[in-house]
Design a protein around this nucleic acid. Structure first.
Lengths: 225, 225
DNA sequence: AAGACGCGTGAAGTCCGCGTCAAGAACGTC
DNA sequence: GACGTTCTTGACGCGGACTTCACGCGTCTT
């Protein structure tokens, strides 16, 4: 199991990021300041580190410097600042990649995959789903309905993926929005209404009476299989 | 970030090389003699090594020999014009490529890319493919279309190989780019558009409506046989 | 009972990614 | 040094995907 250490002083971001990473079958560890991040690396280094540069106690670049004295694990830096000074400095100190906030999970996941591949850690597999009415293969991106191939758009796949990883469990709107559209969209629940509608129209035998994709009003959605 | 170790006793050369490599987003480490080069490899081996054979302290070939006891990282040898004996010897000891001084930076960069690519994807050639419309023999690098020989460029072969290696499965854009163009090109999906277009024009019976090389928008491509 | 709220649906306008063409640069060959 | 091939990069059109809005309906609140 691939372990990822997320370091950020924003608890909300750490939480949503953690949920999304766990949904991809990564094992997630979190730290909210530089000190505990360093402690974590010293104790049991993860396979990859996602590090916010703006930490309360220690400067982010300094964290990188100290981590590098202990481990060569890939570091992906997050920063709200657009100044390239930080970027250059962080990369010089040994960061592997850089993502500016706000960012989409997809972008971060892609960079995580790339960094892990460079450090020769294999990525976790994606699950598949098969019901009486449809089947979904996330690795191959193939969906069938009554034996016939079914076309799903990229956004529909992303939403389904976020739901499928927590199959049987309630997924909050904010988490779905973050998983599919990235942060900064926490309030725009129109998206979810439109795309859950699309999915039900394509997957459910009776879209008006959903059997698999269920609504939890005010909270979120649940994929029941 | 890919790290390259440059070893040469000429500070001016090390400096200009460093500038050019950093401009290409490589991380550069330098050493001016064999001893510190070996030290560097022992401490934290880079992803690739550029090594001048004429070092002040240890013979270049000897450096290669000792490096090979520690690491399999690609080694590109720099040598002055006349010493062809050294070149052969260096290759025998496990160097991957050589460049004779004086050389162009572009030439060295090209060889660096090639070596990194080789070391990253050390895969056996994909097995042959034969369909109703064309046949591909990767070991022999021979393609035919309707019985007639068909010419494919090196890049087209590499792309086809990357696809054929996972035939029937979805291959992500990032993976294709990495396999064909090497590090640092993960985001330039323009290449893929051009070269998938080339391949379809040469292989598909109706390039406008691909039967074998299929697009998964936003994700990647799939070779269906 | 009336209003507020959230969800589902359809439809319009915009945007984005893909495929295509073409020109210039780089490379290898003679 | 000239030529042909290959690679790289830019521009552009097109179709599908996304975003956004308006509206109807059901449920919950007061």
């Amino acid at each position: 199991m691939t372990r990822i250490l997320v370091v950020d002083d924003d608890p909300a971001l750490v939480r949503t990021l953690g949920i999304n990473l766990r949904a991809r079958d990564y094992e997630v560890e979190s730290a909210f300041d530089g000190r505990s991040a360093l402690q974590s690396v010293a104790d049991a280094p993860a396979d990859l580190m996602v590090l916010d540069l703006g930490l309360p106690d220690i400067d982010g670049v300094e964290v990188i410097r100290r981590v590098r004295t202990m481990s060569q694990l890939p570091i992906i830096v997050l920063s709200a600042r657009h100044e390239s000074d930080d970027k250059v400095e962080a990369l010089d100190e040994g960061a592997d990649d850089y993502v500016t906030k706000p960012f989409g999970v997809d972008e971060l996941l892609a960079r995580i995959r790339t960094s892990l591949r460079r450090s020769a850690v294999e990525e976790p597999p994606a699950p598949s789903i098969a019901t009486a009415d449809f089947s979904l293969d996330f690795a191959e991106r193939v969906a069938t309905r009554a034996g016939h191939p079914l076309h799903l758009t990229p956004t529909e796949w992303r939403l389904l993926e976020a739901l499928a990883h927590h199959r049987g469990h309630l997924v909050r709107q904010e988490d779905l929005l973050f998983a599919v559209w990235g942060n900064g969209y926490e309030r725009q629940s129109h998206y979810l209404r439109v795309y859950t509608g699309n999915l039900r129209r394509k997957l459910e035998p009776t879209p008006g009476r959903p059997r698999y994709l269920q609504t939890e009003p005010g909270i979120g959605y649940r994929l029941e299989v």
